[in-house]
Design a protein around this nucleic acid. Structure first.
Length: 421
RNA sequence: GUGGGUGUAGCUCAGUCGGUUAGAGCACCAGGAUGUGGCCCUGGGGGUCGAGGGUUCGAUUCCCUUCACUCACCCCA
């Protein structure tokens, strides 16, 4: 059996499920534009160095998960593993941050990471993201989080928790990481092997470990609060106050750490308490004040997030009535060749009047055509044969009740009848 | 990259302690009603039992390898 298959971790999407995607995308555009965000589309392929510089050379995403390819001119390109870097690059390159220094954009599109697929994780996956460039005030953090919160609740997602933390400014974080290292190195013999690796490579991540004995040791670890400046502390306080004013529930977790290098101060995650298996983060984001400058732009502060569409759809698919059926208005059924000719004629006429009309091309029995109409979810059928063509009248049958009404085949009589039924 | 689970009809799954034509439900097709769906009845089509190799008189079943899917770890949306 040597059939061709899709690349591992890259899925095809078909219709009842795709209807949920369409709903997610439509709701996103509606809500985000209410917040003054405009859509932006950037290439899927970027120069490799963009991600190395933004996401961070030491991160797993860049270190081992990127799809890298060599262009014909030897230039190294990469399929984007996340959306922020491309947006920032595009905004700088096209000089889109105006004199007021602000830019609010959102995007929807595929991202690529070469990981081992599992529930809620694919190699080609899709994100909804938003980036607010140009403002360092904490009310921006609140606005963007609120927008995400509105989207997720408009979609009807329940059992989500907003988890918040602050990472301070880069220099504050360096001090903190040092303190954490000094603490955990004393317990090096008692932490898991993954954490021993993290100790050298990414000390903050130890806080994130799921192993019970590591959690226990982490509970006694120093907290970042002691290392934060006045400004960072009050920024975080104002974010919390702002969320509270909007009645958006949140939890502060000193254990929340982000994987990308560019974050500073506020970071957050929306996690599902059930339904997603262990990949339970539906969305995550935070502030990244240094990134624009790092990529060659002016010193522009920023805040953003990304949400995983597959994970959202996974949660929505559990709820009923998520996928509305795509009903046909009418199926034209023919009993003989005269009826078939008439059926084709009426078919295109109805379609041009924006009625959802269809027929069976295969020339099967009336019974088979009826069954097909029923299966396709048509509201009505009309059976056409020599008699109907001669009389210029037919029976319009409502499939839900079985009742029929006589309609003229002339003019727009069918169309009128369909509108009423 | 590491570990576990699963591969039998379009779908969901039985089954074979190694043995002749491999089953069910659903779906599909046809007929019963020769021009009216859903329910019911009758019949029908459809499977190289994931692939390759080994053991055996004989393998879908046992062994090895491999591939795919899936879940978890790492990491992350």
């Amino acid at each position: 059996m040597t059939i061709l298959r899709a690349v591992k971790g890259m899925n095809d999407l078909f219709c009842p499920e795709l209807n949920i995607w369409q709903k997610v995308e439509k709701t996103t555009a509606e809500i985000f534009s209410a917040y003054g965000f405009q859509e932006i589309r950037t290439p899927i392929l970027e120069e490799l160095s963009l991600f190395v510089r933004s996401v961070g050379e030491e991160t797993d995403i860049v270190g081992k998960e990127m799809y890298v390819l060599k262009d014909r001119d030897e230039k190294l390109l990469s399929l984007r593993p996340e959306g922020t870097a491309g947006v920032v690059r595009a905004v700088i390159e096209n000089n889109k941050v105006g004199l007021d220094g602000e830019m609010k954009s959102f995007y929807i599109g595929p991202m690529f990471r070469r990981e081992r697929p599992q529930k809620g994780r694919l190699r080609q996956f899709h994100q909804i993201g938003a980036e607010f460039l140009g403002v360092s005030e904490p009310t921006v953090d609140v606005e963007v989080i609120a927008m995400l919160h509105d989207l997720l609740s408009a979609l009807g997602l329940q059992n989500l928790r907003l988890i918040l933390n602050t990472l301070g400014q880069p220099e504050e974080r360096v001090d903190y990481a040092k303190a954490l290292y000094d603490y955990f190195v004393l317990h090096a013999d008692n932490i898991c092997s993954d954490c021993q690796r993290r100790l050298q490579k990414n000390t903050l991540r130890i806080l994130d470990c799921k192993q019970p004995h590591c959690i226990k040791i982490a509970e006694e670890a120093p907290l970042i609060q002691a290392f934060l400046s006045e400004e960072s502390l009050s920024h975080f306080d104002e974010v919390q106050a702002g969320l509270s004013r909007l009645a958006i529930p949140y939890e502060v977790s000193p254990r929340l750490v982000r994987g990308l290098d560019y974050y500073n101060r506020t970071v957050f995650e929306m996690v599902a308490s059930l339904g997603l298996g262990s990949q339970n983060a539906v969305a995550a984001g935070g502030r990244y004040d240094g990134l624009v400058k790092k990529l060659g732009g002016r010193d522009v502060p920023a805040f953003g997030f990304a949400a995983g569409i597959e994970r959202i759809v996974l949660l929505l698919a559990e709820q009923v009535d998520a996928a509305p059926a795509n009903l046909l208005d009418v199926v034209l059924i023919y009993a003989d060749s005269v009826g078939k000719e008439k059926a084709f004629e009426l078919l295109y006429d109805l379609r041009r009047k924006n009625m959802k009309a269809d027929l069976d091309h295969k020339g099967r029995s009336v019974k088979a055509q009826m069954r097909r109409a029923d299966r396709l979810g048509s509201k009505t059928v009309i059976v056409l044969g020599e008699k109907e063509v001669q009389e210029q009248r037919g029976q319009l049958k409502l499939l839900s009740t079985g009742e029929t009404l006589s309609v003229s085949l002339l003019g727009s009589a069918i169309e009128e009848a369909l509108k009423i039924s």
